[in-house]
Design a protein around this nucleic acid. Structure first.
Lengths: 197, 197, 197, 197
DNA sequence: TATGAATGAGATTTCATTCAT
DNA sequence: AATGAATGAAATCTCATTCAT
């Protein structure tokens, strides 16, 4: 483990460059195919410097994950009570838009969890933990309004699955979807499931 | 390229063992972390033999993909017209149950596409192509019944996203869901979106 | 850990070459300064092959150590009861000559224990264990004849210290000693300490 | 080469801390495994500062060696003529006790010579030179009294071998020996060899 | 006098693929 | 049809030393 050191301005800057480079490379190559060499080249620094800040590749990704996890967590907590009506749907859609935005910025990290957790790495488990946390908050909101015959936990998972996966398809260009259509459709489907069409 | 050769019984058996081993390893380690060594050990054969049947690692995955693609394609074509009412919903649910079953058997391969396509490998593209094909067929069905203000393509993607991702969560034990609850909930949400609750 | 595999003639030959090369390089550079690269070059093989037989550098040395430890153990057990008189001294000297011979052949490995045990590596502990074993057997012989005011354990250590260190000086050319003079002098000093001059 | 500079109190203190840290790390890790990083951490200073006082790692060790060499040399010169009788043996034992004390304080450096000289480093040669010097003085004393059939040079080496190695065993806890037993036994064995029991 | 940061050469290790039998 | 052995390019990681402040 690299001891967390007190960093001066230059050091903080270098570490930031490495994190950003890591996220960029992650985006284009995925977790397993990312080479330390790619990261340091992009950050315009050396291997030695990389290992000054992170004791290995995994730790770089853990640091990225921690940053994203925090954003996701605040987002989850920002979800207000769900309500029926055009008004409630608009609020839901606005929340989903924020999610889409976070995914647009940090999708690569989120997707990397998927890749990593299959190998059972620590990084992968971080992703699972976040999913659990995120889900817990949303379930609470769904429980308040779900019809009695709809399991809130399952419904929430469906929602999260849609959120994550649809963004994923869009971002990897596996399909073409208008960005606006994503949040609108997600809001509509979710709302319909909870309150009827 | 290994020329497709006529194989005797023994050869076919060996190749089958390699394919099965490949799928198993894929399930536990994921695309990038799968080693030829793991595969041949599990298949109780040797590296030399592996390259007798596949000219490289990628080709093994392609062969696996081809098998799964075929099943998925028949499944897509088996989707009957969607109809309103309890009856229509039951038929939809039964189709989803079949999907869940296919995913249960071949999830590792399907999930590996995700991982692979990030690196831009041929295997990854195969997955994308399959998604496109699969989607095309489903869109046709959805178009027949979607309300005018719901884009059939997007709605289909939502459906597929749910299908794939929820199964994924369940299969990787990231969350616990009752197997039956999966198809029931998926059917309910889809039906509600298309026909109202 | 590299699983112990069944080796054919060629494999056994290669492994032997690596072991021998390891011992040679150890002799000239010492434990820590030995590079896998030196070993494989001398064995006229490749890095890849090295890791086929040993999962890392340490394991190569452990294998060497085990071989030497066995020889040392048989030597210890070959020590007959110590007796007074010219006759007894001749027998002692002949045993010491054998020790000198083993040291001449495997001194590098024995010396490497010293270097390694300082770092607390497994390899180092092997050396300590061997010393303990070896000493135990010799103590038994010394106890039979030591004068009451001479602690057999300490006397044995003195003997072993002389044996090891004098050989070491001679082998590393830190001093020049006629090979015959080594065993003769060691026999004389030991015998004098136990039985009087 | 770092020019020997006139150091103020603060500088002298820093250099002392580095030397002490060097000896401590040497004790726990050995010559080859000692890292500049370990030394500066223990001395609570920085890499930059280290190279202010020593032009490289080797020079730190040379400085340590020089300090120890001086002590050893005075010790050698303090050896009085060897004489027979209880009286002579007591004087011998008292000298050996001083040796044991020096070894207790500086054993790590002395042991490191062994490790270093295998790689042919300057530091190793320093150790060899010291051994030669030390031996020369002792041989002179032994020559005065050795029986005609005992080569004084070899007898001296035996003595030094015992001295060094027994202390080494004791200090590295490879065996347990009562501190007093060390010098007593060494004195007895040496005396017996030279003068008969 | 001091130090945090950076460097890069060199070491270890991995693994897809080829070879020889 | 099968396989044990070998390979070497490429990846990860280490650490003595230098730089800039």
């Amino acid at each position: 483990m690299t001891e967390p050191r007190e960093l001066r301005a230059r050091g903080r800057n270098t570490k930031r460059r490495l994190l950003d480079a890591g996220e960029t490379v992650l985006a284009s190559k995925g977790y397993h195919a990312t080479r330390v060499d790619d990261v340091v080249k992009l950050a315009r620094t050396s291997h030695g410097t990389f290992y000054l800040y992170f004791s290995n590749k995994e730790e770089l990704f853990r640091a990225l994950a921690a940053e994203v996890a925090e954003e996701m967590q605040s987002l989850a907590e920002a979800l207000e009570p769900l309500t029926d009506g055009a008004d409630g749907r608009a609020r839901l859609q606005s929340w989903i838009t924020q999610f889409v935005e976070v995914y647009r910025r940090h999708g690569p990290v989120i997707r990397a969890w998927t890749e990593a957790e299959i190998g059972g790495s620590e990084f992968g488990r971080l992703g699972t933990d976040l999913l659990t946390q995120f889900t817990r908050v949303v379930i609470a909101r769904v429980s308040e309004v779900a019809p009695p015959d709809l399991d809130p936990a399952v419904a929430t998972l469906v929602l999260v699955a849609m959120l994550e996966r649809l963004n994923y398809y869009a971002l990897t260009n596996q399909v073409h979807i208008e960005p606006d259509a994503i949040s609108e459709t997600l809001a509509r489907v979710t709302h319909a499931s909870l309150f009827g069409s």
